[in-house]
Design a protein around this nucleic acid. Structure first.
Length: 415
DNA sequence: TCTGGGGTCCTGCGGCTG
DNA sequence: TCTGCAGCCGCAGGACCC
């Protein structure tokens, strides 16, 4: 093994390769070496993950499934199994935590590790990276890529550059020459809109941004984004690896199979989403001060409306009532055709710290007890084991649902 | 081509308050 | 009592990331 110039590089970014698709292929060996796409089966779903054999045909994550099917009609399409991916993710994160306690998960399939405290015991960062790759492959039969550098931004960049099944070190002090020729989109925070704005300024590479006066960037991007991009373009990123990141909001949203204008149907969906949101709140022992709804019209324009409550809550009835009031006040109730609705709870606080304010006639304690009981039943028998009568679909007992608006992504029954 | 779902962060505006 | 100002907060929207 050739020595790698990794001194000063104590940040690792580990990224699983085509994670969901790799788990599916692992569990179905007959699919090995074939194009596989993980995604919903309905008309409006998108690609969640694709094997590299499918990517060779141009299939990409977040691409509409209809387009992916056209590009690669021979691909095997598999509906997602989120529980299976979550289980693999927990095992992989345990491998990381056996190396260092400083692990910051970014999503199910990637994490940053600060290994500065593990070097004396386990060897150089590159040695640690190779060890992690070997353990993931041995224990989970899937591959990952590891980027190693002096900060998070560069480590992430390195892992992207060595995919799939690779390991790349950006030696300390060489970041600027590595970064200079890259397109601006390589910078974290530059999406399509920002890329267009930068192109109007004549800035196309990371080197162009590094050379541009900060004032020019501030004028078109704002102070925070300008400072952020200028620092990244110089290879500077002071963010530490944070092993305990607190959630700031939880929520749920749903795209309808066909656009909906009927207010009663929208309210029913708001109830369903409020239940999902409050279940997430209660499972984290959290309550929320502010409730936000999101309404996306058929032309894809999106509005949000929010309301801050006198006290934080995790009760479905209160959040649902707030969501309905916001919907009624939006001016879209029964008017616009909606393709998506969402409910989000913001301003999270530990549930134990919330003061209970009951007004005359309220049945707060009774509701809380009932919802706690429902949570326990849901945990044992599934989320739809018990639900409000409003959410029992027409004809459900007979097996045929008339509620076509809600059917989606092949997961209509796993809400 | 026709765009999911879960999030975070930033900006700008208006109202309130001292 | 009125006005101007600064700071804070709530709200809405947009961009971005995985």
């Amino acid at each position: 093994m050739r020595p790698v110039a990794d001194s000063g590089c104590h940040i690792l970014h580990v990224d699983m390769d085509a994670f969901y698709a790799s788990v599916e292929v692992r569990d179905r060996p007959d699919l090995a070496g074939r194009p596989v796409i993980v995604g919903g089966l309905s008309g409006r779903s998108v690609v969640l993950s694709a094997t590299y054999q499918a990517r060779a045909f141009g299939v990409r994550s977040a691409m509409p499934m209809s387009r992916a099917r056209r590009l690669c009609p021979q691909a095997t399409i598999i509906p997602p199994r989120h529980a299976a991916y979550g289980a693999v993710s927990r095992e992989v994160m345990a491998i990381f935590r056996a190396v260092t306690p400083f692990v910051e998960p970014i999503s199910l399939d990637e994490a940053f590790l600060d290994v500065s405290g593990a070097i004396r015991l386990l060897g150089s960062p590159a040695t640690i990276g190779r060890r992690i790759r070997a353990q993931v492959a041995e224990q989970q039969q899937i591959t990952c890529s590891v980027g190693i550098a002096e900060n998070k931004f560069l480590a992430k960049l390195a892992s992207v550059r060595c995919k799939p099944d690779g390991l790349l070190v950006i030696p300390a002090g060489t970041a600027v020459e590595f970064l200079r020729p890259l397109p601006v989109s390589a910078l974290w925070g530059v999406g399509e809109k920002t890329r267009q704005t930068l192109a109007r300024l004549g800035l196309r590479t990371v080197g162009d941004i590094a050379a541009a006066p900060l004032g020019v960037l501030e004028r078109d991007l704002g102070k925070a984004a300008a400072a952020h991009l200028h620092a990244l373009a110089d290879g500077r990123d002071a963010r530490p690896v944070e092993s305990s990141v607190r959630e700031k909001s939880v929520g749920a949203e749903q795209t309808f199979e066909v656009d909906i204008s009927d207010a009663a149907t929208v309210r029913r969906e708001l109830l369903r989403l409020s239940r999902r949101t409050t279940r997430a709140l209660r499972s984290g022992s959290l309550a929320a001060r502010t409730i936000t709804i999101k309404l996306r019209k058929s032309d894809f324009t999106t509005i949000t409306r929010s309301r801050t409550l006198p006290a934080a809550t995790s009760e479905t009835q209160q959040i649902y009532a707030t969501a309905c009031a916001l919907y009624a006040a939006s001016g879209l109730s029964g008017q616009a055709r909606l393709r998506l609705v969402g409910v989000r709870a913001v301003g999270l606080v530990p549930a134990a710290t919330t003061a209970t304010q009951l007004t005359l006639g309220e049945r707060g304690a009774a509701w809380r007890d009932a919802e706690s009981a429902l949570d326990r039943i849901s945990g044992r028998f599934g989320p739809d084991a018990v639900r409000p009568a409003a959410l029992i679909e027409t004809g459900e007992a007979g097996g045929n649902s008339a509620d076509v608006g809600r059917r989606r992504h092949g997961q209509a029954s796993q809400d």
